[in-house]
Design a binder for these strands. Structure first.
Lengths: 199, 199
DNA sequence: GTCTATACCCTGATAGAC
DNA sequence: GTCTATCAGGGTATAGAC
C-alpha cells in the first residue's frame, strides 16, 4: 500500500511546519522533501494555505476524540482516582504520539501569531478538557470522594500541570534530551493531586 | 529626554518579534516603523541577528531579577503562604508588564524553533524558579508548616499553574478579550494550593 | 547617521509542454 | 500529474553620496 503524493505532501508539510512554523516552511522545501517540483504541489492543493487548513482540520479534532470516546462522564467519574489516571495517561500518550506531538509543536509556534490557532487551542482544546474535568470533579464531590471546592478551579489546577509537563517533554525531545524524568511527573502529579483532594 | 534611534529600533523590533516571530519580522518593517530606511539600521546593528541577541540578553535576565532580588530564601520562606503569594504576585505582574509580556510572547513563538531559546527557557527561566521554590518548600516542611513531600515535585506542581495562567492571560489579551477571570486564577491558585498542603 | 541605488537570494504562484 | 520556465514581490545586506 503506497502513500499517495497528496498524503506525502501532508506528512512532509506537518513535519516542516512543526519545525519551522507556517511561514518558515516553504513550498519549495516541502516539494523537495517529497521528491517533486514546486509546481506539482498545486495539482493537489490550491495554495499553501490549503495545505495548512487540511492539516489543521484533520488533526485539531483527533486529539480530543481519543480522550472523550469513553462512556458518559457521570459514570466513569465515580471511579475517582482511576478516572484521573486514565485522563492523564491519554494526555501523556498524546505527547509521545508522532503526529500529535508534531501538531502540538506547530500549535505552540502559531499560538501567539495566529488568531485561528488561538481559537482552536482555547475552545476546542482547553475549554473541552475543562468541561470534562469539571463535570468529573462535580460528580466526585457529590459522591463524597473528594473535598468540596469549585469544580472548575479544580479542573484548572489539575489540567495545568499536565499541559506544562507535556510541553516540557516536547521541548526536551526536540533536542534529543532525556525526557524520562518529566515523563514520571505525569504519574506523580496524579498521586500528589489525589492525596491533596481526596477525603 | 528623547529616545535614541538605537533604542527605537530595539523597541520596534521587540514589538514585531512578539507579533510575528524572528523570521516574520523583517528589517524593512522595523525600519519603516522607526521611520528610517533599511540601510540605516546597519549603522546601529551589525545585522538582524545582532538585534535579536541584544534584545534577548537584555530581557532574558531581567525577569528573574524581579523575583529573586529579595532576602535569602531560608528566611522569607518561613512566611509560608505570604511567601507563595509574593512569588505568584511577581509572576502575575510580569504577565501584565508591557516589555515582559512581549518577550514572553516572543519566547513562546521561538521555543519550538530555536535551541538557544529553549536553553534560556529551561535553564534561566524554569530551572531557576524551581530552585527557589523547592528550597522554600523544603524550609516550610522543616518548619512543620506544610505536609512532607518531595520539595521538587511540590515546586513543579505549584509553578505549572502559574505558567499556564500566564499563558492564558497573554493569549486572551492578544485578541483584546477579557482576561480578568484568568487574572483571579492566580489568587485562587494560592488559596487552593495552600489549603491542600498546609498542616 | 541617513539617504539612494543596487546586488542577489528566496518566496508563492502561473503558463504551457509532455 | 509532473516537468521547465518564468514572474513579481519581498528578504538581507552593502557601496557610496551627502
Amino acid at each position: 500500500m503506497e502513500k499517495s503524493t497528496k498524503e506525502k505532501i501532508l506528512d512532509v508539510a506537518l513535519e516542516l511546519f512543526s519545525q519551522k512554523g507556517y511561514k518558515g516552511a516553504s513550498i519549495r522545501m516541502i516539494a523537495s522533501k517529497v521528491g517533486i517540483r514546486e509546481s506539482a504541489i498545486y495539482n493537489h492543493f490550491k495554495n499553501k494555505e490549503d495545505i495548512l487548513n487540511t492539516i489543521v482540520s484533520t488533526l485539531s479534532s483527533s486529539s480530543l476524540d481519543l480522550l472523550m470516546a469513553e462512556k458518559p462522564i457521570e459514570e466513569s467519574a465515580k471511579k475517582g482516582k482511576s478516572f484521573l489516571r486514565e485522563f492523564a495517561t491519554s494526555f501523556k500518550l498524546l505527547a509521545y504520539d508522532d503526529k500529535s506531538e508534531k501538531f502540538f509543536r506547530f500549535m505552540m509556534i502559531e499560538l501567539m501569531q495566529n488568531a485561528k490557532m488561538r481559537e482552536i487551542f482555547l475552545n476546542d482544546f482547553h475549554k473541552a478538557h475543562l468541561k470534562v474535568l469539571s463535570q468529573a470533579f462535580f460528580v466526585m464531590m457529590q459522591e463524597g470522594m473528594i473535598r468540596s471546592s469549585d469544580p472548575m478551579l479544580m479542573a484548572q489546577e489539575f489540567l495545568s500541570p499536565l499541559f506544562f509537563y507535556r510541553m516540557q517533554a516536547t521541548l526536551l525531545r526536540i533536542d534529543a534530551q532525556d525526557s524520562r524524568q518529566v515523563a514520571t511527573l505525569f504519574e506523580k502529579h496524579i498521586d500528589f493531586f489525589w492525596e491533596m483532594v481526596s477525603l
